[in-house]
């Protein structure tokens, strides 16, 4: 079960849902016994296959075009499949510097976010203070803000503080946008770490911060990894924020430079555009598979957004 991709694997990871999987299996056997159930299964599978093919078509173009030196916008089998498009775009100016920038932005944002989220989650999870409830409501509310809508005032603010085209400023803003979700996820992970070990440490005179560093953080490493990857994936894919806040070509992340590449050569070099897009997407897809293995998976990502 765990080797399955996406939904099944993710469900198996959540202990509370394992029960419902076994009962769901039992239900399936029950319906196989009835002829109407078997017809229903074939019907469902055929409809799913049709939907799957429709969903697959735009993705197939991406892969086939990247292997085709004379790619068009339509799905067609490359006459002479080659990796020429990849070799053409794998130059420092075209893809390597933008990908490095994407990495700096995403990793920087993920580090800042995870650090602030762990610190904030600890008092929220361990003490009952008067500030907890308003803070958590504020955080939940923050997850609902349409960030796209905020970019105009954010731009004005960045101009006022002279932070336009500043990587650090952009990283801090990206961190602030992912922080509400990260705090919420981190608090939930921390809630599931038993408190008894910490109580022992407190009795021995360890401070709260020391307990956090020496006991809680090591115990919730998989959870921290899930939050880190989650923030990393989100930032890696973000187009609008760096598009508005960064200007110089040597600072632009891949998301934005792919867009300018499209504007400059897009109408002639679809193959290269597809190749660049794939190079840029592979890390995200790999991290997604990794987060599924870590026990979070698509389910946790969806769950994260759900609160």
């Amino acid at each position: 079960m765990a080797s399955n991709t996406t939904v099944d694997g993710a469900l198996a990871a959540a202990p509370t849902t394992t029960r419902s999987i076994t009962t769901a299996d039992a239900k399936r056997e029950f319906s196989i016994a009835a002829p109407r159930g078997r017809a229903m299964r074939w019907f469902s599978s055929i409809v799913l296959v049709v939907i799957g093919i429709v969903f697959l078509l735009p993705l197939v173009w991406l892969v086939l075009a990247s292997l085709d030196a004379s790619a068009s916008l339509s799905v067609k089998w490359p006459e002479a499949p080659s990796f020429d498009n990849f070799l053409t775009v794998l130059t420092p100016e075209t893809s390597l510097i933008p990908l490095t920038n994407s990495f700096i932005l995403s990793a920087g944002c993920a580090v800042v976010t995870v650090f602030a989220a762990i610190l904030a989650a600890y008092p929220l999870s361990r003490y009952s203070m008067r500030i907890n409830k308003p803070f958590l409501y504020g955080v939940l509310f923050g997850t609902c803000l349409p960030i796209t809508a905020m970019m105009v005032p954010v731009y004005a603010l960045f101009v006022a503080f002279n932070l336009i085209d500043n990587m650090t400023g952009t990283i801090l803003f990206l961190a602030a946008t992912s922080l509400p979700m990260a705090i919420w996820m981190m608090k939930n992970f921390m809630d599931s770490v038993p408190i008894s070990l910490e109580e022992a440490a407190w009795t021995d005179g360890a401070s709260a911060m020391r307990t956090l560093r020496a006991i809680v953080v090591p115990l919730m490493r998989p959870g921290i990894a899930v939050v880190f990857i989650f923030v990393f994936i989100q930032t890696w894919g973000n187009f609008f924020i760096p598009f508005v806040l960064l200007l110089s070509p040597e600072k632009l992340p891949a998301a934005v430079s792919i867009f300018s590449f499209f504007g400059q050569y897009g109408s002639v070099a679809y193959g290269q555009l597809a190749a660049f897009s794939l190079l840029y997407s592979v890390p995200v897809l790999a991290l997604y598979v990794l987060v599924t293995r870590l026990g979070g998976g698509s389910f946790a990502l969806a769950g994260a957004v759900k609160g």
């Binding site: 993705l59 173009w61 994936i233 894919g237 867009f259 897009s277 794939l278 995200v284 897809l285 997604y288």
Partner: peptide
């Protein structure tokens, strides 16, 4: 899961 800009191109 694809980055939004890539999905948009597709």
């Amino acid at each position: 899961v694809l980055p939004e800009i890539v999905a948009s191109f597709a």
